[in-house]
Nucleic acid binder design. Structure first.
Lengths: 158, 158
DNA sequence: CTTTTAGTTCTGTATTTGCAGAACAAAAAG
DNA sequence: CTTTTTGTTCTGCAAATACAGAACTAAAAG
């Protein structure tokens, strides 16, 4: 079973790695995350990961620490075993996504500053800037509303 | 007036440039975009931009073409004037944002593949993966609903 | 035709990024 | 104590990025 799906797993890891990379992480971070996604069992030691991915210890260490800093990965330990068993932390994954979707940077605030600083000689241009700001604010509100909706939905289920 | 706010404008351009850069563009692209935001008048020639930013022609050319490819900038021409006057295209800006918010690549699809490929030996892990997928799908739906809401809102206003 | 203008494309380079490999550290094992 | 294990941190390099400057192009002006 493991051997039959091993190739598929590797391919999946590559594809997921790229997707995570596009979300703004380093390539190695994406691969480490991906390896923990497909891993069966879902927890792996430092050098399980290193061997599976064939990358250096420093890359694994940096990646795991980056992921742990964002609470996307944590680890367990077993009695009488010095190793740490790293595993995905799904709640951390979800809050990471919330963060990424949610606050759209300083842009709206900066755009407001722009409009304030502009002359009123080109009202049509200023109006379209205001509309852009309006759109961003609207989306921010809608998104945080959606997140709350999701959370109350989850609360009801439990 | 222009001279008193000139410094403020330059600072704003830098700050906006960085914000745009963080959104995944090259530094020079961010600055060109920003310079068109604060520019009064809102349209500028190629070498207005070059002189204002103090960067090379190639950088300006590449940046403008990148922005035009995404329809975030366009240009007008004046009769008997060979120059192009570049300006921000607010609708393009907004649709660019829609695309960027409108989410998140192949990830949910890949996660579904992961779940399918996984054994059922660790049901709790699989369950939490499913919840993550659910969250992403939920947010995608909510976001596109919000965008539609915005669009009908805009239609009514006109 | 030649020259100028307005921009594009190419070539080289400085900077940044991302990782390997080695040196290092801390704690446990022997 | 010494050795082994489980990582971490540092040093250096290879590749990718982003831009400058120069060469080039197309169209208009003269």
């Amino acid at each position: 079973m493991k051997s039959t799906s091993a190739r598929h797993a590797k391919e999946l890891v590559e594809k997921i790695g790229i997707a995570v990379e596009k979300a703004g992480f380093q390539p190695a971070v994406g691969r480490v995350l991906a390896s923990l996604l497909v891993s069966d069992p879902p927890y792996r030691t430092f050098d399980d990961i290193q061997r599976f991915l064939g990358i250096s210890k420093s890359a694994v260490s940096t990646a795991l620490n980056a992921l742990m800093a964002r609470e996307m990965v944590d680890y367990i330990t077993l009695p009488g075993d010095r190793k740490r068993y790293f595993q995905l932390a799904a709640p951390g994954l979800i809050s990471q996504m919330k963060r990424k979707i949610g606050l759209h940077s300083a842009l709206p605030e900066l755009l407001r500053e722009v409009v304030k600083a502009r002359s009123n000689k080109y009202p049509e241009f200023n109006r379209s800037l205001l509309e852009t700001i309006e759109f961003i604010s609207f989306m921010e509100k809608e998104i945080s509303a959606a997140i709350e909706k999701w959370e109350t939905l989850k609360l009801k289920k439990s």
